[in-house]
């Protein structure tokens, strides 16, 4: 059984009124345990709406969403679902509840009704995992954006979720903060947590083993980044900007250099170019250097 299964999900805001907006238009996909998925898409592509369906903050207008076999429409399973799928939001300031870091991390487990000793153990562990243990007595508003977001992640981890959904959680952060959050979720994923990272930073999507592109409320592309980012024309049609390295590789290829498809990282591109230069030098000596 996949951790998350979405069947033909449609979501219409203000359904049945004059200003009805179709946000999701027939989405079907599954996410298995332990996956690290990036969901990208332009403004209005339905990313955030999709995210809010994953822990029953929104319910489908049509279709079904299953979390660990539980239908999100089932009111009785609501708290089980929300405990299993934790969500980190965009603005770190608007999701921290308490005036002290450790109290905030304790908020989730407290809502689950756990005994105090267990809560203390989980808060300790969660703060250690996001490397914020020395800040446990701090006031959240004195932390940097990246630190606040890590506290928010700790608050979710303390509920021991199976899946972490980040709804543009890096969008409001500076590059340093983005790096902190990316490193944290990569580490979590290695420890077995399923991560669904919704972002419009393509250089972050490149680092995820699976990339799903949403466009107009539908799944446009779904595959490993090497495959997704070689579909340049389609991405341009969805007004998505390629990450820098694939973009450069694509331009070089368009200019006639025989560079292989599926290049994602600086090292790969550098390797390809070095090989090219070596070959070119060989050919140059043979006598047809007319490029």
């Amino acid at each position: 059984m996949p951790l998350i299964e979405i069947r033909n999900l449609r979501h219409v805001y203000h359904a049945g009124t004059a200003d009805a907006v179709v946000a999701l238009d027939g989405i079907s996909l599954t996410v298995d345990r332990g996956e690290f998925v990036a969901i990208v898409g332009g403004n209005g592509s339905g990313k955030s709406t999709l995210a809010k369906h994953l822990n029953a903050l929104l319910l489908p207008t049509e279709g079904e969403v299953f979390v660990d076999g539980m239908n999100t429409r089932d009111r009785g399973a609501l708290w089980e679902i929300r405990q299993r799928v934790g969500m980190v939001f965009q603005n770190p300031d608007n999701q921290l509840v308490a005036t002290v870091v450790e109290e905030d991390v304790a908020f989730g487990p407290e809502n689950l009704g756990l005994p105090p000793a267990e809560i203390v153990a989980r808060v300790d562990e969660a703060l250690r995992v996001v490397e914020m243990a020395e800040y446990r007595q701090h006031e959240p508003h004195l932390l940097s954006g990246g630190q606040k977001q890590r506290v928010a992640i700790a608050g979710i981890l303390a509920m021991r979720p199976q899946c972490l959904v980040l709804d543009e959680a890096t969008t409001m952060l500076d590059p340093q903060g983005q790096r902190e959050v990316m490193e944290t979720i990569q580490r979590l994923n290695r420890d077995g947590v399923t991560v669904i990272h919704i972002t419009h930073a393509m250089e972050e999507a490149v680092q995820c083993p699976r990339v799903i592109v949403l466009a107009d409320g539908r799944v446009a592309l779904d595959g490993p980044p090497a495959e997704v980012f070689s579909r340049v024309e389609e991405l341009e049609r969805f007004r998505l900007v390629l990450p820098p390295i694939p973009a450069l590789a694509h331009r070089l290829r368009r200019d006639g250099l025989p560079i292989p498809e599926g290049i994602l990282y600086v090292e790969e591109l550098a390797g390809a170019l070095t090989r090219l230069v070596a070959e070119g030098a060989g050919r140059g000596r043979a006598g047809d250097g007319t490029h």
């Binding site: 809010k52 822990n55 903050l57 708290w79 929300r82 405990q83 934790g86 969500m87 939001f89 603005n91 608007n94 999701q95 509840v97 450790e102 109290e103 304790a106 908020f107 989730g108 487990p109 407290e110 809502n111 689950l112 009704g113 756990l114 005994p115 105090p116 809560i119 203390v120 808060v123 608050g155 979710i156 509920m159």
Partner: peptide, 21 residues
């Protein structure tokens, strides 16, 4: 946004709730 984040963290008022301290 805070209300949404609290709901996502299983907040449902004072019932069922315990305290760390």
């Amino acid at each position: 946004e805070l209300a949404l984040a609290m709901e996502a963290r299983c907040y449902r008022g004072g019932e069922h709730r315990t305290r760390m301290k």
